[in-house]
């Protein structure tokens, strides 16, 4: 379970939001909404521990993530605006390095089946620099299928994906939720993952009225 307490976020002089409180239970999906510049990406980065909040805490299973970073990182898979792929490496190499770094080494078969599932098996052994934006995004998303991260934090995961890939990803997320995992995401697209466990929050509620 992820808990957010009294979170305040500043960018330079501007206070983006403050006094934010919410929880994300296992098996739940939280869709973070808000207007441009309301701090969606900042919130996601704070939750991953990449950005230092001005005040407040983020805790995972009751423990502050800043004090239990390794433990939390094991449970986390973050896909941000950047795909986090090395252009000079192939899709398989990229995924294999990622898997080993996160402490869940994957066999070639596991990696290939992950690529199969995102529909990219035919490009598995090409340097990722020759892939299109959408294909690169799919390689990045294939990370979700490797390793046992329970919390997925996805910043605009549907960017550059075609209709078919979007519905594939929705399926992947539904499976993850059914297995008790949780998802935190931002997106501009109207997506329905599963009606029972889907919740929305809007950052504009916590925006400081200047």
């Amino acid at each position: 379970m992820l808990q957010i307490r009294d979170l305040e976020c500043r960018r330079g002089d501007a206070c983006l939001f403050s006094g934010m409180n919410f929880e994300l239970q296992d098996g739940q999906l939280l869709h973070v909404k808000g207007s441009n510049g309301s701090g969606k990406t900042s919130l996601l980065r704070i939750i991953c521990g990449l950005f230092l909040p001005a005040a407040g805490t983020v805790s995972w299973q009751g423990l502050d993530i800043r004090e239990n970073r390794d433990e939390f990182n094991r449970a986390l898979c973050y896909i941000g605006h950047l795909n986090g792929l090395k252009d000079d490496l192939t899709a398989v190499e990229n995924l294999s390095i990622h898997a080993r770094l996160t402490g869940t080494p994957a066999t070639r078969d596991q990696i290939e089946s992950a690529l199969e599932r995102v529909g990219l098996m035919h490009r598995a052994y090409l340097a990722t620099k020759v892939l299109s934006q959408g294909q690169k995004r799919r390689v990045a998303l294939a990370r979700l299928l490797l390793g046992g991260a329970r919390l997925w934090v996805l910043d605009e995961p549907f960017t550059a994906l075609d209709v078919k890939a979007v519905s594939q990803l929705q399926g992947v997320m539904r499976d993850h939720l059914a297995k008790g995992g949780s998802v935190l995401l931002t997106t501009h697209q109207d997506v329905e993952i599963s009606s029972s466990s889907h919740r929305d929050i809007n950052l504009d509620t916590w925006a400081k009225s200047a």
Partner: peptide, 9 residues
């Protein structure tokens, strides 16, 4: 390219 973020995580 964002791989540094992944290293940090």
């Amino acid at each position: 390219d964002g791989t540094l973020e992944q290293l940090l995580l």
